[in-house]
Computed example of a mutant assay.
Amino acid sequence: MEDQQKQFVLGIVAYAVQRDISAEKLCRLSGISLPDLMGKNNIRYTAKQLNDLWLNACHLSNDPLFGLHLGESLQLAALGVVGEIVKTSTTVGNAITIATSLTGLVTDLFKMEVRQGEGRFAIYLIPDQARRKDSEFAFKQTLDFFMVFMIHELDGFILEKIKPEEARLPISTPGKEYARLLRCEPLETKDEYALTFDSKYWDLPIITANYELQTSLLQNVNLVELTQAESDSYRARIYQYLLKNAYLGIVSLEEIAANFNVSPRSLQRKLKDENVTYQEVADEVRKSLALHYMNSGKYYVKEISYMLGYNELSAFSRAFKRWTGTTPGIYQKHLTTG
């Protein structure tokens, strides 16, 4: 379990860095050696270290919903071999079944169980009450993470935003962020944590190519050369976030702001200070993605238009001509003719 647990800790720290938190400070306050974490050796972290890591991440980011937002941002690859195994699944149901059986490699605070019923299936997160007692804060944050992470990854499996039929958890006033990230109004329960989905998703084939696509994109699609200060800018951070989650389309300013734990108005001000707007950053990402999809030679223009979130092919064609000076059809033709 040590290696998978270490991967998960690395994911938490990496996301904290995206939130302007010093990795060295976060690890020091949590009793974790950053050099050891970055090294190759396996490490077994104590319940106190993990609990302190979540506490300090929430405190330093001023975000009590850090676990929820981590679930929205983290990708399956961050879970190491667990993620690699899940990615080899053939259907959504197969992936969920494998994921539930491997949860114990990442955390021992709860186990996952799938229950199928008439026209629906539910994923239950069942607490280990003995371990939970000594790590209540870590338990809540980790559980929040997993609930959102499962929904987010299901999106990636089929390139569609999935909305659960129900989300059940013992929170009397969960607030708007829970409803936004769980995509439904949570139902309060005594001590039950579960997500219920329509059974139509169970047998859908997984589009595994999106993971290879993301790896390729992150390796080949980059911003122009940036100074260190520019690479730490909101523009660069938002660009990278949109790129990493490209298979879900370009999200709204409100969703981006929530992920960075700032108000939409505040984010607009920060971008204005950098002489750029959110729309311009989103446009940069669409242009980079469009060119990458085109150059890959694997997609029709209509497919690319859809993947980039354009409702009308004509709207994508106009945008592409604005970016490149030519239409998608002519650009694609030039690629094939050399």
Rank of each mutant, 00 (worst) to 15 (best):
L29S: 09
L29A: 03
S30F: 06
G31Q: 09
P35L: 10
D36R: 14
G39Q: 11
N41I: 08
N41Y: 09
N42L: 06
Y45K: 12
T46Y: 06
T46V: 02
T46M: 09
A47R: 12
K48H: 04
Q49S: 03
L50C: 06
N51S: 06
D52F: 00
D52A: 07
L53F: 02
L53R: 11
L55W: 10
C58V: 05
N62T: 02
D63L: 02
D63K: 01
D63I: 01
P64G: 10
L65H: 10
L65G: 04
L68F: 03
H69G: 05
L70I: 00
G71C: 09
L74F: 01
Q75C: 08
Q75Y: 00
Q75H: 08
L76H: 05
G80P: 03
V82E: 13
E84W: 07
E84R: 13
E84N: 12
I85N: 14
V86W: 09
S89N: 07
V92C: 13
V92P: 04
G93S: 09
N94R: 10
I96T: 08
A99T: 07
T100R: 12
L102D: 12
T103L: 11
L105I: 01
V106P: 02
V106D: 03
L109W: 07
L109G: 06
L109M: 11
L109R: 10
F110T: 08
M112L: 15
E113D: 12
